[in-house]
Design a binder for these strands. Structure first.
Lengths: 124, 124
DNA sequence: ACTATAATTGAATAGGTACTCATGTATTGC
DNA sequence: GCAATACATGAGTACCTATTCAATTATAGT
């Protein structure tokens, strides 16, 4: 866009504005509030180091709670809490076998996004 | 740091049920701690609704602080704080023209991940 | 110089969150 | 039945964070 400041004063944030056409374009392309809210919740699953490591581990193969706790060197309770978070967010699924509960990623799509995030930080 | 007692006890099922081969596989595939930490920080930028909406808007074209504040119906200060976060995370860049500061995404890569997250929640 | 505007910034605060601890539930084996 | 194991869960807590508010900086116009 042009860098020329258009001081075409219209009603805005408080009193003055701004680049009306640019804002209108951005507004028209902005998804609904429920979509952006759900999307930020989705990314929140990856935004914690513990959860991201859990997801990375499950990208290899299914693991039980105790496996993950041992792998990450954390308490079983802490892992269980995070797994509940991930399950409610529909990123992981579980199956029960005897006393053991095995967790796995819901779909490969999650693995793709995970890998892209890791690739991004490895480049930059 | 003796103030916070760290429970080293991962003795839960350590002897019995851990699936050693599965854990070893996951461990070998796990990136270094600094990588997973950086990756979770990267995803953290997308994990807040306000930041995600800012990124979505900037995916269209560059905008000044006031534009974004008007678009999202939030205070200019709140937006400025989040833009600083995004800039430090190297997701956005800025250029100054007169009194106005224009923000834009650092690269198209960010837009791709953003779009994938939005697509994910629109499907499910 | 003075005024107005765009943006930044620090402090304060309310709400969120990730862990620990203790307890509860389900399953297995004796 | 009882004990042990694997996991889940609620409460408590310390930390984190997203916003508001007030003050400040920078630029432009008069």
């Amino acid at each position: 866009m042009s860098a020329t400041p258009r001081t075409e004063a219209v009603e805005c944030c408080e009193e003055h504005v701004v680049h009306t056409a640019a804002v209108d374009l951005a507004r028209s392309a902005m998804p609904d509030e429920e979509i952006t809210s759900a999307a930020s919740d989705f990314f929140k699953a990856f935004s914690d180091k513990t959860r991201l490591r859990i997801l990375t581990a499950l990208a290899q193969e299914e693991l039980c709670v105790c496996d993950i706790a041992a792998l990450l060197g954390m308490s079983q309770s802490a892992i269980s809490h995070q797994l509940r978070f991930l399950k409610q967010a529909r990123l992981v699924k579980s199956r029960k076998s005897g006393k053991t509960v095995y967790y796995a990623l819901c779909d490969d799509h999650i693995q793709v996004i995970l890998a892209q995030g890791i690739a991004h930080v490895q480049e930059g």
